[in-house]
Design a protein around this nucleic acid. Structure first.
Length: 270
DNA sequence: ATGGTCGGTACCCGA
């Protein structure tokens, strides 16, 4: 199957069952072809397949668990194959992949990198070590499984805001988990693993602030605007000429019972 | 400098 235009979305949904109506709203208003979700917090046998089948997402690949993490890829485009990956020795539902018949064959990876806890210290905080180990393993894994000439997409909640203007205050967040040099250095190394294109920054200049997440712990997220860009869509070089448009749907932060993350949308033209 | 709010689940954990 050859597609002319493909609209891809990544969204940390923070409970797929609670927010199925918001995914329906996204589908109705923006008509994405593929939706990659993180933090579904839903065991596979309780996943609301019917809701998404009814919206035209006939092809669904999931890997969920009780209470934590969990991933889904909802698609109008069939999968050639699906995979579930276990990273850094854990089976905690943070990495799935589908193969698509796009541009001669494209692998789409959905990632949920660990948040890393509060203390940016691997000696005292196992969650932070887990996060750094996860990124290092992904870097090596991409290097060893692909060539720069392969069509690969990596999306998800990376839980790292790599650039100065990916956070509301670079200076104030340098010691805050998500923006520490230990994390951003490693994410930059991961970006070099396949000469990945950070597609948001392909469309938005590096000196312009842009976010995809605003904490629940702010009285007024829009007024304080203390956001971070934690959600990413990366593509390898062969897909770069096909990048057509980009949108971070910040309005979704004001939808009824919102996630703290908003959808990141990328359009391809083939 | 501190505490602030969510969701899932089970009276707390992770974000």
């Amino acid at each position: 199957m050859t597609q002319n235009n493909i609209r891809l979305v990544t969204w940390n949904i923070n409970s797929v069952r609670l927010r199925a109506p918001l995914i329906e709203k996204l589908a109705n208003e923006h008509a994405p072809d593929i939706i990659c979700l993180q933090e579904t917090k839903c065991p596979d046998d309780l996943f609301p397949f019917d809701t998404f089948h009814a919206l035209g997402y006939e092809h669904i690949h999931i890997h969920g668990m009780k209470s934590y993490n969990g991933q889904a890829i909802l698609s109008k485009i069939p999968f050639e194959a699906t995979e579930i990956h276990h990273r850094v020795g854990r089976e905690d539902c943070r990495h799935i992949m589908v193969k698509l018949d796009i541009n001669g064959g494209t692998d789409l990876h959905n990632l949920y990198i660990p948040a890393g806890g509060d203390e940016p210290d691997i000696e005292t905080n196992d969650k932070f070590k887990h996060k750094l180990d996860f990124v290092e393993e992904m870097t090596l894994w991409f290097k060893t499984h692909y060539k720069d000439t392969d069509n690969v997409i990596a999306v998800g909640d990376f839980n790292i805001a790599p650039q100065e203007h990916d956070v509301w205050s670079h200076k104030q967040l340098l010691k805050i988990v998500s923006h520490t040099p230990a994390e951003t250095d490693r994410l930059n190394d991961m970006q070099k693993s396949l000469t990945w294109v950070d597609t948001t920054r392909h469309f938005v200049p590096s000196d312009e602030k842009i976010y995809s997440w605003w904490s629940y712990r702010n009285r007024d997220w829009k007024k304080s605007n203390r956001g971070r860009r934690l959600d990413h869509i990366w593509v390898t070089q062969p897909l770069k000429p096909h990048l057509a448009a980009h949108n971070i749907l910040s309005e979704a932060r004001d939808w009824e019972k919102p996630s703290d993350h908003v959808p990141v949308i990328l359009d391809f033209k083939f």
